[in-house]
Nucleic acid binder design. Structure first.
Lengths: 318, 318
DNA sequence: CTGAAAGCGCTTACAG
DNA sequence: CTGAAAGCGCTTACAG
């Protein structure tokens, strides 16, 4: 491994002079030395040791990306797409992405402190633990899709309530009167509840009803399909709060001989690419994942620069 | 930040004694001190500094995962699923996952050396640069889906050739005589060529033909659909070497009024969950992504332990 | 069983 | 413009 010392010896200067060149502090070094040192760096293939840098400068150039959930969380296209954009952007900002899948919340602090991460980005549901995480970690923390009531919080989300409103309006305008709401496989969190609330409020404003027994939290889509088809008061309009689940449900219903959208009209959420390849195309509430990632990183680096933690709440449309 | 020194002072011992407890070298410390130190660690919430460890011990506990490709590579369900399993496993082994998206191959060395990664795992096409990467980095490197001719190489792949054979056999057994082969959107690499070769060889062994003009490398599926429908010698059996692309093509053909499988029979590759939710269900060559990830990590850690780099080639069935 | 010394590769802060 | 000193938090290697 080539070190500053090796370069210094070869160039006949001190390590400090080499360090200055490596860090592009050119105004502090003579042109002659800059040229000489750069050519030696090139020749020897010097790569700075990030651990040493992190240790001495307290700046690790690491952004931790923390995903909550069970099993392979990247099987969810939403998580995968979001994570992909985030890593791309972290790299563009000149940082390194360390990815952690989390179950125990105490692990968050462990990971962040252990690597001296400069900032962290959270995907998934952390609502109940945000306060603790914030108390333990004094670095910029950006949450996504959170509905925590913590006041001092940076969150990037969409207007999930409005998503529910849009779904309900669409159904009502198309003459539907009997609705169901299906939560996705993932845990039922505040985000889902917001979508439900927007849906429900809009239905009730139109003097219609979303019956409690028509709100399902499936663990199993096959069973959900069975229940949907055996309601005493049949429904015609189904809002499934995530495309994945909507597509699976649609498949089950079709295999039972029901026609979509004649027998059941379905609206999903996310507008994943795949929702356009099923038959019929899935109607869905769209959200711009790329923009969400961009926002999240912008805010993160803004706070990283300023080192000021202020309250912030950002929501984009859908 | 709490350090070894803080704990040592509080416990009235040297940092070495604390270090031994932190590293669970209990046989070297008195029971009394173990208990005392552990309780202080707990009380103060001590987390070891990984940079310092990495610097002094040369063991970073970092596995770099390197993805090649352009744009958001995690929009590919294959990449996302694979990465998800890999990260899960890296964590289970007690290591940390650093993820890098790569375009320039020189960046590989930069990243690996900079963080003193203990091992690296590669997703995507690196064939032409494997030799260089290996020469520059003396740590266990595990490639996936590679068909490099480099002799000293650890690779985890499936039998892509056999995948092509299976597709051809299925078509032939079902009476098809006119075939097309479509490469996926991604770059045409050796892996795709193997699938093609297996397909082509099997067709020719059956005294049938896969005409060169029926092998398409689409940049645009709409255009591909147009070309498929305007062949002078029409085809009935289409092998698309990735599910994503197969599903998109199927959609285009259906929208033009063609019936699947009556007008065109299609086989994909990967058996992604989504292939079972399109109508009709996509016939596809299955590969076990989870098992591939498990193999990859097993081999990586095997070599990490032994610190011996031997030749190895692993292929699972499909 | 315990600890003092040296060092990992870098940066900060200072003196010149 | 340049460099010697000290230190970041830990581990290795040794002495006792």
């Amino acid at each position: 491994m080539v070190t500053l010392k090796d370069i210094a010896k070869e160039a006949g200067v001190s390590v400090m002079t080499v360090s200055r060149v490596v860090n592009k502090r050119y105004s502090e070094v003579s042109d002659e030395n800059i040229a000489k040192i750069q050519s030696i760096i090139e020749k020897l293939g010097y790569v700075p040791n990030s651990s040493a840098r992190s240790l001495s400068s307290k700046s690790s150039k690491i952004i931790s990306i923390i995903l909550q959930g069970s099993g392979n969380v990247l099987e969810s296209p939403y998580n995968a797409t979001m994570l992909g954009y985030i890593i791309q952007l972290v790299q563009e900002y000149g940082y390194n992405a360390m990815v952690h899948f989390i179950n125990e919340y105490s692990d968050v602090t462990k990971h962040l402190q252990s690597w001296n991460a400069e900032g962290a980005l959270f995907l998934g549901t952390f609502d109940k633990n945000i306060q603790q995480i914030q108390a333990d970690n004094k670095l910029p923390l950006v949450f996504t899709d959170s509905y925590s009531s913590v006041r001092q919080l940076i969150n990037i989300g969409i207007d999930d309530y409005k998503g529910g409103v849009l779904a309900a309006k669409h159904f009502i305008e198309n003459g539907h009167r009997d609705f169901a709401f299906i939560t996705p496989h993932t845990s039922v969190n505040q985000l889902i509840k917001q979508r439900l609330k927007g849906f429900q409020d809009t239905i009730e404003t139109a003097n219609l009803n979303l019956y409690p027994e028509h709100i399902l939290e499936p663990t199993n889509m096959e069973e959900t399909a069975t229940r949907l088809c055996s309601f005493k008061k049949p429904v015609s309009a189904i809002f499934v709060a995530a495309d994945n689940s909507a597509i699976e449900l649609m498949d089950r219903l079709k295999r039972r001989g029901y026609r979509i959208p004649e027998d059941f009209s379905i609206i999903g959420f996310d507008n994943l690419p795949i929702s356009q390849y099923v038959t019929p195309r899935l109607a869905t509430i769209s959200q711009d994942i790329k923009q969400k990632a961009q926002f999240a990183l912008e805010v993160l680096f803004q706070h990283l620069k300023k080192s000021i933690l202020t309250n912030a709440e950002y929501r984009t449309g859908c």
